[in-house]
Design a protein around this nucleic acid. Structure first.
Length: 685
DNA sequence: AGATTTACTATTTTT
DNA sequence: TAGTAAATCT
């Protein structure tokens, strides 16, 4: 717990390094504080200095709890705190920090036994949860006569309710399916069975990590222990917390009231995951003496970009006046381009990217944002064609990709041989084994005590299935005897057996084999299987791919959701059509406003260059479809944009066909921005 | 015939 | 990646 020595601390001149509004937050005394921080107002910087300030006041690091939206955000903030207070890189700063989920995970492994949670629980991720819920639905209702059988639409709706917003379910199922009245009953039956199975296999899903944590805070014995554990609680991105998270925060801070919540109601974009914007609005009601601070100066974007952002968000009825003002010098207006189709959109964006790079921008200073992960396909192809390296964020993450999950499933069985979900995954990799055969086998394997008894399991199966079962049996038995080995070695052993399948199934198996090699390397620093598997589920660390590319200077492709909290000198927002942004299924006013906030988030990521594009038609496998510009685009005050409709006449040879506004003075601007003290030379500050 | 596997098509956002 | 139709096995 030590590793932290007050004498190594360098005195920070907070007043000199922060503006007055930030300084007020950083040096705020005890009691509840709410910080309404606009986009680009130095929110992360303020929080980081707040932590450093508390440490300078003599608060021990382990008495501070810092809750962030991603684990990466917390890790980066802690690195900066270490720099500020002059701590060596390898010195540990024993502060409690991370997402609600990862802190909940740690606490439940320590105190869970008091509320009936096995300390060795495994974590059920979203995909596994979905599989389990679907299986249960089928088992419970698959054999009913047609009339009382829930339609596939109902089943999938119920499952998506259970997955994404299990917390606010009661509200609207009946209303959504008035024609099928027993739906709530159906839902409850499925959930009850789901709960039972989780308990039987000691599994916790993401919601459980929160709700059991909340139970802990209310426990007569553990509650007071947690109350006394932290003196200061800091919560970032408060607008995206859900009800349970808000209750946890309230319970933890109730006794000492030392809570600082930071957020921006204009950037609330996670209500589909049960985030509730009311949490931030009601903060002053819950904490009666709360002092509200506003950070209203934007240090990130040019006035032209900020004007556009303000114009977009002003169309929302529900919003709280917070006038953001820019301090950067004027530059050109954001550019809106209509292009003929999605292929030309990709070509045009790539042209622009090459132009920006020719003018001295580094690739990592450029980002392309879109509403849905698959919108990037044509752009990825074009970037590949021209040999421009890029990093894809959003979409499937490293640990969510099929081959990684397959290999992890073997280890999960090794860790807990009653893990039915992993069994199912592994078994179905083999010829002749589908859901039915897998289930038959799992019923038998769940009877044995340890994997040592596995060779004795001989279910009655078809010829092909028996052959497959023997293979699985062989692999697992051999793994069982290597159990003492390092996790990296275990993964290598699994890879040996998995390679044939990989080569046969995936055309891009070279890349995937490489991934698996990296997984083995990543895993070799672990010797406890349980903690490795937890990290894989919670993605506690950087993914391997990200870690590898960390220093890579490449263009970033990202969903808007994933771009939250980040910034780039040049940003493209593509595919701004009625069919994609706002999402066509976002119909209620509430949903429309969230989509508008999403566009606001996208626009405010840009520091200097901003390009909006939309194709007038999109090619699909079944021909092409004509598109209209997003209503958000047609709503914009035309004076705020430079319109570019020259795409029809462009010769797309390479770069030169498009008139590109020269930007030679960018480097100078850069220097000015850096020297004012608000934008150090690190991204996302 | 009935059960089960495999092939095919279309896809919102995620700790 | 998931739901459904077609193909294949028992």
């Amino acid at each position: 717990m030590i590793g932290y020595n007050m004498s190594t601390m360098i005195k920070i001149d907070f007043e000199k390094e922060l503006n007055s509004a930030q300084h007020e937050v950083v040096t705020a005394g005890d009691g509840p504080h709410l910080v309404l921080a606009g986009a680009g107002s130095g929110k992360t910087r303020t929080l980081t200095y707040r932590v450093a300030w508390l440490l300078e006041q003599g608060i021990k690091p382990e008495r501070i709890l810092l809750l962030t939206f991603t684990n990466k955000a917390a890790a980066e903030m802690m690195e900066r705190v270490k720099n500020l207070i002059g701590l060596q890189k390898d010195n540990k700063l024993s502060l409690w920090g991370g997402t609600f989920h990862s802190v909940g995970n740690r606490l439940l492994r320590i105190y869970g036994k008091h509320i009936g949670v096995e300390p060795g629980f495994a974590i059920l991720d979203q995909e596994d949860k979905k599989t389990l819920l679907k299986n249960i639905s089928k088992e419970l209702f698959g054999n009913l006569p047609d009339k009382s059988k829930p339609s596939p639409a109902i089943i999938s709706e119920v499952i998506s309710f259970a997955i994404n917003s299990g917390i606010k379910v009661e509200e609207s199922l009946d209303a959504k399916f008035p024609e099928w009245l027993p739906i709530v009953e159906f839902f409850e039956k499925v959930l009850a069975e789901y709960k039972k199975r989780k308990q039987a296999n000691s599994l916790l899903d993401f919601d459980d990590l929160l709700s059991f944590w909340k139970t802990l805070t209310e426990h007569p014995k553990i509650g007071p222990i947690l109350d006394a554990k932290w003196d200061y609680i800091l919560v970032d991105e408060y607008q995206d917390t859900n009800t349970v998270q808000a209750e946890i925060v309230y319970n933890l801070a109730e006794s000492h009231q030392n809570i600082l919540a930071v957020g921006d109601d204009a950037q609330s974009i996670y209500s589909f995951r049960a985030a509730d914007i009311r949490n931030i609005l009601d903060f002053p009601k819950k904490f009666k003496n709360a002092k509200t601070h506003k950070l209203e100066t934007n240090y990130r974007s040019t006035p032209e970009i900020l004007n556009l952002a303000n114009n977009v968000i002003s169309k929302n009825k529900k919003q709280f006046t917070k006038k953001l003002s820019a301090v950067l010098p004027s530059y050109t207006r954001p550019e809106l381009s209509a292009v003929r189709n999605n292929i030309e959109e990709a070509i045009m964006i790539t042209d622009r990217i090459q132009g920006l790079m020719a003018d001295g921008l580094r690739p990592k200073q450029i980002a392309i944002l879109f509403r849905a992960a698959h919108h990037s396909q044509s752009l990825e192809m074009e970037l590949n064609k021209r040999g421009i390296d890029y990093e894809m964020r959003g979409g499937l993450k490293f640990f969510e990709r099929a081959h990684i999950k397959d290999v992890a499933a073997w280890l999960r069985i090794l860790y807990n041989h009653k893990d039915a979900i992993s069994w199912q995954r592994v078994l179905q990799l083999y010829e002749g084994v589908g859901p039915a055969t897998a289930k038959k086998i799992i019923t038998e394997t769940s009877q044995i005590k340890t994997l040592e008894e596995l060779p004795g399991v001989k279910p009655k199966l078809s010829e092909k299935a028996t052959q497959s079962w023997n293979k699985v049996n062989e692999v697992l038995s051999s793994l069982f005897h290597q159990k003492q080995k390092n996790i990296g070695e275990l993964i290598k052993a699994v890879n040996e057996k998995y390679r044939d399948y990989l080569i046969e199934k995936f055309p891009d198996h070279y890349q995937r084999e490489d991934d698996l090699g990296q997984l083995a390397a990543f895993a070799s620093s672990y010797d406890d299987l349980g903690s490795f598997l937890t990290e894989v589920s919670l993605q506690e660390n950087f993914t391997v791919r990200q870690a590898q590319k960390q220093d890579n200077d490449v263009v970033v492709l990202s969903t808007v959701h994933q771009s939250k909290g980040l910034e780039w000198p040049a940003v493209f927002i593509m595919n701004l059509t009625t069919q994609s942004f706002p999402h066509p299924l976002a119909v209620t006013e509430h949903e429309q406003e969230e989509e508008r906030r999403l566009l606001y988030v996208a626009i405010t990521r840009a520091m200097k260059h901003l390009y909006l594009t939309y194709p007038m038609s999109v090619y699909r496998f079944d021909g092409h479809k004509s598109m209209q510009p997003s209503i958000f685009i047609s709503d914009i005050d035309g004076n705020l944009l430079n319109h570019n409709e020259l795409s029809r006449n462009i010769t797309y040879a390479s770069g030169d066909g498009v008139s590109y506004e020269s930007d030679g003075d960018f480097e100078d601007h850069e220097k000015n921005e850096r020297s004012d003290g608000f934008l150090p030379d690190v991204d996302n500050w």
